[in-house]
Amino acid sequence: MIDIWKQIEKMQFSPIYLLYGIESYLINETKQKLVKNVLTDEEMDFNLANYDLEETSIEVALEDAETFPFMGEKRLIFLHNAFFLTSEKGKQRVEHNLSKLEEYIQNPPPYTILVIIAPYEKLDERKKITKQLKKHASILEAKKLNEIDLKKWVLQKVAENEVHIDDDAVDLLITLAGTNLMMLSAEIDKLSLFVGVSNSIKGETVENLTSRSLEQNIFSLVDKVVHRKISEALRIYYDLLKQNEEPIKILSILANQFRLLYQTKELQRRGYGQQQMATYLKVHPFRIKLAAGQAKLFSEEELKRIMLLCADSDYQMKTSGMNKIMIIEMLLFKLSKSA
Rank of each mutant, 00 (worst) to 15 (best):
P285T: 05
Q92R: 14
H136M: 05
I201M: 09
L172N: 03
T40A: 12
K324M: 04
A255G: 13
K249R: 15
D149M: 06
S198N: 12
V225E: 07
A159W: 02
S336L: 04
Y51K: 11
E204A: 10
A311M: 00
F258K: 11
G21M: 01
L181I: 02
T130C: 09
G90L: 07
E147G: 02
E73M: 09
H284N: 15
L123F: 08
Q275T: 03
L331Y: 10
D64C: 04
F83M: 09
L308C: 03
D3K: 09
F286H: 04
K131A: 10
S14D: 06
L184A: 02
I27A: 07
L209T: 14
F258Y: 15
L254D: 11
L34H: 15
A177N: 13
S252N: 12
E246A: 07
K224G: 11
S336W: 05
K33L: 15
M1V: 00
V163S: 03
E329D: 15
I8F: 09
N107P: 00
I105Q: 12
E23S: 03
T205G: 14
L335P: 06
N81G: 07
E23T: 02
N28L: 09
Y120W: 05
E232H: 11
A233N: 05
E245A: 04
D124P: 09
L254M: 15
Y238A: 02
K134P: 06
A142M: 02
Q275I: 01
K135E: 11
L123V: 10
F46W: 14
L241T: 10
T175R: 06
D124C: 07
D189S: 11
R305Q: 10
I22G: 01
A311I: 01
I77Y: 11
E160F: 10
T130D: 05
Q132E: 13
N217G: 13
Y120N: 03
W153C: 02
F68C: 05
L85K: 07
A118P: 00
L123S: 08
M71S: 14
S338K: 11
S138G: 02
E102D: 13
V170H: 08
